[in-house]
Design a protein around this nucleic acid. Sequence first.
DNA 1: AAGAACGTGTTTTAGACAGCATGTC
DNA 2: CTAAAACACGTTCTT
Length: 643
Amino acid sequence: MYVRDLPLSDSVIDHYESLGIEELYPPQAEAVDAGVANGGRVVAAIPTASGKTFIAELAMLTADGPGLYICPLRALAREKYETFSALPGVSVGISTGDYDSPADELADHDIVVATSEKVDSAIRNGANWVADLACVVVDEVHLLGAEGRGPTLEVTLANLQRRAPGVQIVALSATVDNPEDIADWLDATLVESTWRPVDLRTGVYADGLVEFNDGTELTVDVDDGSTPNGADEDTEATVALVEDAVHNAGGQCLAFVRSRREAEALAERLAREGLATGASATVADDLTAVDGTSTGHRLADCVRDGVAFHHAGLRSTHRAVVETAFRNRYLAVICATPTLAAGVNVPARRVVVRDQQRYTGSSMEFLPVLEVHQMCGRAGRPHLDPYGEAVLVGDESSRAELDERYVDADPEAVESKLRDRTALTTHVLSIVATGFADSHATILEVLEATFYAHQTPVADLSGIVDDVTAELVEMGMLTEGTSETFTATDLGAQVSRQYVAPETGARIVSGLRRAAEMPAENVTGLTVLQLVADTPDMQDTYLGNRERAAMYQYARNHDAEFTVGMNDAEEFERWLETVKTARILYEWTEGETMETIVENYRIGPGDLESRVERTEWLLGAADALATLLDLDVPEIARVRSRL
DNA sequence: AAGAACGTGTTTTAGACAGCATGTC
DNA sequence: CTAAAACACGTTCTT
């Protein structure tokens, strides 16, 4: 099947042909056969890099009206926004938390790229462009099974269909065990394939030898001169595998490890192997220009030797520089935590997964098969490699287990997480606030359209809806009328629009009331920052044992400033963490440099950046709620302007 | 006596979406 | 109830 035979305009066909895209990949042809180019609903469960973007474009270009492309990450949204913008005669808009086309223009675009939360928010705020959509493409639908964000995605998809009945839905999934469940739910045709444009061989390394699943083998010379305890062996094997790929296979590598610290340690170890490229120094200079943090300096030093590390402790600019440099082949290796497994497109010749287990708060657990497969799937650069190689590092005792668990295994099934209480509370409130439902029965009706209801008999939802609505009434977010009818209160409506969890809204409200009663001189920047830090929508900040005593002292000295004092705190340890978060943010608003804060509180520059971002959002919500309740807390505005 | 080597108890551990209104190179 | 590796720090062993 050829591009020129598809129902596309001449200029679009020329565009594809100029990119060298003439004949469709097999999964793309299957999608066409399933009707993507004719308004048909399709679920495509195919590997990354097997041409999903083309399927998405095809659906949106042939649809009879505007298209919406939903994806899970902002960085991904940016990447797609740029790709779609290159299509001739197509106007593209973007809507994510950090980067937004003007809201009134969204309706005028042919394609809008957005994160799922942003789409959910648009629906909650009654955006009219949603109803006019002819086509919705959902990337990474398997995230339906993710705790926290999965429920948002399924409720959003259910609501979208309510607002735009009969829209064409095209869902793109990684290879999972039950794609037919998703296809069934969406009333779509399933296209399933494991075809890849570049072959992939996966294997396990143990004792100097990689045994690949295509029967081939690779001997690796491991320099085990250094003290051989378990960890060093894995690291040295990883070093040898990376070096071999770069020097002998002419390729770049990704190495996945368990923690940030180990990503950095491995990068520093690899920096001694002479992997620098001609452009390494330029990239290093770009990185140094971002900031003067020690993390930035260490990254630049590694990059000078052709090696980078990549994890969420890095600022987004640092991450973007590393990703781009790697794509341009200015870097030989990236040592990464799972950030890179599902993020933007960074294909490599060889992927080495050194650690397959991770601490989960209570014990070491094997990574999900899907996650390991996504890491491995990054191997194989189109037009550059004859095949990609993915290697799991193990030893003789674990070889068989790793083979069975990952190499030969199917990924997990996608299971709805909507039953989660917090998720239901949030979405039931939004369903009522948006006007999709006004009673127990109609709430159930809306929920019946979700993936959860599709997978599980609905009967047991009824009781939960009772509990959840009762809780929302108790919180003052809903009022109950006669015969189980519900209306959102002004507070409930505002909480839903501000996109904070009901629990967050309730905590902000009680904090604001308390602050309004406190002596004015006690209401400081720290007060409002701790107030928003002590909500479930703020991520907690790790409080190390070493700094606990000093933090306790600080909390005592400022106790009068907190809306919830140390004696009233329900969980003291968590409360003390919120004090740490607030203290960090307070110093930030007082003009302390990122370098100093990052040094003093032992957090990554990226951690500070993301907390500041969340604080902007949560203080915005606090401001809106204060106005609604007619509570005067001027510190909010002052702190907001200094973030 | 300096420094390497060893032993033991302690510390730490992945990721990342969202409001709203303006202004910028 | 469930782990493992790095680190900090003190002690012993070598030269």
